[in-house]
C-alpha cells in the first residue's frame, strides 16, 4: 500500500532539456560557473541555506526559509517540474536559483539567493535562470515576484517587467510580474552574459564538490567592534564579535 500511495504523491516531471553550464568572469577576475544540480546534490546546498534563515537582513530570512522548503520538496519529490541552478567560484557556493514550469509556455521563478555580495553574483544567476526558461526550454514568459526591495529594483526596474497582477504568484500569493521573451531580448545585450562551453578544469572543479561559502551574509553584529578592538589590548571586542557569529554569546 505504501508504495502505491507514494506513486500518487510523487509528481511526474515533464521532460525538459537540461541547462547547459556556462561561466563568466566577475569584477575581481574570478571565474564563476553556473550549472544545474541533480537531486543528489541538494543536501550539500541545504546546509548552506539553513544558516541564512536566521539572517534578519534584506529578507534573507524569508527567502532562505522558503528556498529551504523548495529544495527539500525537490529532494523528496514533492514539487513538480522544479529545477535548481548553482553558481560556484572554485567550487565555492556563491548563489542558488530555482524555479519551475507552470505550463509548457509559462515559467514560475522561485528564488535567487546570493551567498557572496557586492559582485553582481545574484544578478548573473537571475539572468541565467531567465535564459534557461526563455532560450533553452523555449517558454514565452516567466512569472516573477520580489520579496526584498533589492530584488524589486533588480528585476522589476532593470528588466522593466510587465504586470500580470491577475495571476497570484506561488510565492506568497502576491500579484505577479512577467518577463516576456521580448523584454528578455531587450535586456540580452546588457544583462545576460556567460560563455560556453565551460573549460573542463572549471567544470570538474565545480562538479567535484559544493564547497561552503567563505563570506556568507550574516546577521547584524556589533559593527563598532573593529574600532573597539584597536583600543582593546585584550582583544575581547573582536572575540565577542566572533562568538556572537558562532552563536556562543
Amino acid at each position: 500500500m505504501a508504495v502505491d500511495l507514494e506513486k500518487i504523491l510523487r509528481p511526474v516531471d515533464n521532460p525538459v532539456p537540461p541547462f547547459p553550464p556556462k561561466y563568466m568572469m566577475l569584477a575581481g577576475g574570478e571565474e564563476m560557473v553556473i550549472r544545474q544540480v541533480t537531486r543528489d546534490e541538494i543536501p550539500d546546498i541545504l546546509q548552506h541555506v539553513e544558516p541564512l534563515i536566521h539572517v534578519e537582513r534584506d529578507y534573507y530570512d524569508v527567502v532562505a526559509a522558503r528556498l529551504y522548503s523548495e529544495l527539500l520538496a525537490y529532494y523528496r519529490y514533492r514539487v513538480q517540474d522544479e529545477y535548481v541552478l548553482v553558481a560556484q567560484i572554485n567550487g565555492e557556493l556563491v548563489a542558488v536559483v530555482n524555479g519551475r514550469l507552470l505550463s509548457k509556455d509559462v515559467g514560475m521563478s522561485y528564488h535567487t539567493v546570493a551567498l557572496r555580495r557586492g559582485l553582481r553574483v545574484g544578478a548573473h544567476a537571475f539572468a541565467t535562470k531567465m535564459e534557461y526558461h526563455i532560450d533553452i526550454i523555449g517558454q514565452k514568459e516567466v512569472l516573477v515576484v520580489a520579496e526584498s526591495p533589492i530584488g524589486f529594483r533588480r528585476w522589476m526596474i532593470e528588466y522593466e517587467l510587465e504586470k500580470r497582477f491577475h495571476i497570484a504568484h506561488e510565492l506568497g500569493g502576491v500579484p505577479s510580474w512577467a518577463l516576456t521573451k521580448e523584454l528578455f531580448n531587450r535586456a540580452r545585450e546588457t544583462l545576460v552574459v556567460g560563455r560556453r562551453p565551460v573549460p573542463q578544469h572549471l567544470l570538474e572543479k565545480a562538479q567535484a564538490a559544493i564547497l561552503p561559502p567563505t563570506d556568507p551574509p550574516k546577521a547584524p553584529v556589533d559593527l563598532l567592534a573593529a574600532t573597539r578592538s584597536l583600543y582593546d589590548s585584550t582583544g575581547t571586542a573582536l572575540m565577542s564579535q566572533r562568538w556572537k557569529q558562532e552563536g556562543k554569546a
Partner: peptide, 11 residues
C-alpha cells in the same frame, strides 16, 4: 574583471 572580459560591461 571590470573592463576587458566579455562580462565586464555587465559586472
Amino acid at each position: 574583471g571590470i573592463l576587458d572580459s566579455p562580462e565586464a560591461m555587465t559586472n
